Simulated scan of single mutants.
Amino acid sequence: MGVARRLHRDHGFDLAIHITYGVFRHPSFLGYLGIPFIFGPLGGGEDAPLALKRSIRGREKLKELLRSLLNKTALFDPFLWAAYAKSKLILTKTEDTRQALPWPFRRRAIVYPEIGIDAPAGIQARARQPGEPLRVLFAGRLLGWKGAHLAIRAVAQAIAQGVSVEFTLLGKGPFESELRKVAVAAGIHDRIRWVSQVPQQELFALYRTMHCFLFPSLHDSSGNVVLEAQAFGLPVICLDIGGPVTLVTSETAIVVSTQNQNEERVVQGLADAVRGFAGDEQGRMAMSRAALEHVRGAMSWEKRAYGVFALLGQVTHGD
Rank of each mutant, 00 (worst) to 15 (best):
A4Y: 07
R9D: 14
H11I: 01
F13G: 03
V23R: 08
P27L: 09
S28E: 01
L30K: 06
P36Q: 04
I38H: 07
D47P: 00
K63E: 12
R67Q: 10
A74L: 07
P78C: 11
P78R: 14
L80T: 04
A82W: 11
A85I: 01
T92V: 14
T92K: 01
T92W: 05
K93S: 10
T97Y: 08
A100Q: 13
R106N: 06
Y112C: 01
I115V: 13
I117M: 02
P120Y: 00
Q124T: 15
Q124V: 15
A125H: 05
P130I: 04
G131Q: 05
A139V: 13
K146Q: 14
A154T: 00
G162F: 00
V165P: 03
F167R: 02
E176K: 15
E178P: 01
K181H: 10
K181R: 15
V182D: 13
V184F: 13
A186P: 02
A186E: 15
G187K: 11
H189I: 10
R191W: 02
V195L: 14
P199W: 01
P199H: 04
Q201Y: 10
F204Q: 13
A205N: 13
A205I: 02
L206F: 08
H211F: 06
P216T: 04
S217V: 12
H219M: 09
S222F: 10
N224C: 03
L239R: 12
I241Q: 13
P244S: 12
P244V: 12
T249G: 10
S250T: 12
S250E: 15
E251F: 11
A253F: 04
I254Y: 10
V255I: 14
E263C: 12
R265S: 09
V267F: 00
L270S: 10
L270V: 12
A271Q: 12
V274K: 00
V274E: 00
G276K: 11
A278F: 00
H294A: 07
R296N: 13
R296M: 05
M299R: 15
R304K: 15
A305N: 01
Y306Q: 13
H317S: 15
